[in-house]
Design a protein around this nucleic acid. Structure first.
Lengths: 270, 270
DNA sequence: TCCTTATTGTGATCACTGCTCTCGTTAGTG
DNA sequence: CACTAACGAGAGCAGTGATCACAATAAGGA
């Protein structure tokens, strides 16, 4: 009995992945603007026009690479999240953040492809939104899970801020309904801030905006991850493991000078 | 004595700005990848080779546009900062943030040029670092100024976080020395977080990552501006000039030809 | 088994790009 | 006035994305 995938379909699938692999190689070497269809076909030993049998245009090839990149970073985030104790929400948040940054540093051009400037006139097909939201959903699920578990601290300093207005409530309505059913509007907007901060600092690092400002980003990233987690109400990780740890090993007493004003209160504002 | 600016130099300066203006027009219409030297010369009625008398390569023209963009957003930030009472640091922070977002929404392609994915292999000339740091310096000066004035609140929840380690202190050393002489390391790293959050949320909005997540970003942006200001110790603005930014000019940009698909966005990624 | 059909690879070709070169022309300077 | 450096124009090169007609071939129905 012949398999449902004939010989032609198998060859087509193989060549498709081969094209994508070669394209990804060129992407990593030259970046998105340097991705040339003709160079891909040249490397694969085929005619320059043959590639259009598999990808109708350059944008379609880029779309495939975008979907793969979203899937890759999403898988990295999910895997990191699954590798930590499920009830240690602070550690999960940190692990996801570190994983996203690690993937981004390892695949800078693919990161730029999905989180950098979009190609003008390029219309994202609907099949990109699924992979695109994987890493977002990981973070949202973990924050909302902490809230449902009742271990999400009340948002600090909230009483010192003006109450949330109707416009803001309307803006985050779909977000709250979709991903944050157990979370207040206040925490939801803070989650957006933490989410965008994460990618903001990664983009700045990758795109060179830290030159002459910060040389070693790892400690700063780890710390702001902690701060952002604290912002949304996540407590510090119980178990911290990772490439740039050292936060729990503050025993030597070197780094633990008293804060400038010697505050010993817990929250002196709330 | 002949004037230092002869007739030839004057014509050269005029044509240079004319080229840049036309290039900026094409940039706003088609984006950076669609910027064509030949199209620019065509619009100006000159030979295609003549433009190389003024800009040795396409990258040099882009560099000029980058410098101008940095200067424009820097000037917008400085102007907004100067338009608020100097001792109302919360209002200054908010004004600067709103101004940066307003400029970005009004000039999306120029924003993408400077804060989006950099051109691979493109090395920023040293004359870009000056304009590039204008908006950063505005924010740093205002935070440090609040600290020097003694009105910067102590960082909230600091005692609940592990103390700052030696690595983190070393990472922000140059930053603290350079821009935050009156601020603790704790606040300095929070300033970095707030800074990157600001551009992270703007990038997400402009690059389409809020689709199906947040429809009206203005209230969320304003709120997270408040949260980030609070994070670094700035108190809420005493005078708030307006609840939301004016986004009337935020639509399809300036040179808004209708895209072939009848879409309402100028670029479509995710 | 045969024959039709759809799919695939190929080379030619088009319009376009950034960029270089040469060749007259002209403004600025001694 | 003469000379040099800057300038504009045109031809040309190598490369690009994309389209086309044409030949070869696998797939599937009669």
């Amino acid at each position: 009995m012949p398999p449902t995938t004939g010989l032609r379909a198998r060859l087509r699938a193989e060549l498709t992945t081969e094209i994508k692999d070669e394209a990804r190689r060129q992407l990593a070497a030259e970046g998105a603007p340097g991705l040339s269809l003709r160079a891909v076909t040249r490397s694969l030993g085929m005619a320059s026009s043959a590639i259009y049998r598999y990808f109708p245009s350059r944008d379609d090839l880029l779309t495939a690479l975008i979907v793969d990149a979203y899937d890759a970073v999403g898988a990295a985030a999910e895997e990191a999240d699954a590798g930590v104790a499920p009830d240690d929400f602070g550690a999960r948040w940190r692990a996801v953040g570190l994983a996203v940054r690690a993937w981004s540093l390892a695949n800078p051009h693919e990161y730029a492809l999905v989180y950098g400037s979009p190609v003008p006139g390029y219309r994202a097909p609907p099949d990109t939104v699924g992979p695109a939201s994987r890493v977002t959903l990981v973070m949202a699920r973990l924050i909302d899970g902490a809230a449902r578990a009742g271990v999400l601290d009340d948002p600090p300093w909230t009483p010192t801020l003006p109450p949330i207005g109707v416009e803001l409530r309307a803006s985050v309505r779909t977000l709250v309904d979709l991903a944050f059913p157990n979370v207040s509007d206040e925490v939801a907007v803070r989650a957006v801030a933490a989410w965008t901060q994460l990618f903001g600092i990664i983009s700045f690092e990758l795109f060179g905006h830290f030159h002459n400002v910060i040389d070693e980003v790892s400690p700063v990233f780890d710390r702001s991850l902690l701060e952002m987690g604290r912002l949304v109400g996540l407590s510090a990780p119980r178990s911290s493991s990772g490439p740039t740890v050292d936060v729990s090993s503050a025993g030597p007493g070197v780094g633990d000078e008293v804060p400038p004003d010697g505050e010993d209160e817990f929250w002196h504002l709330v």
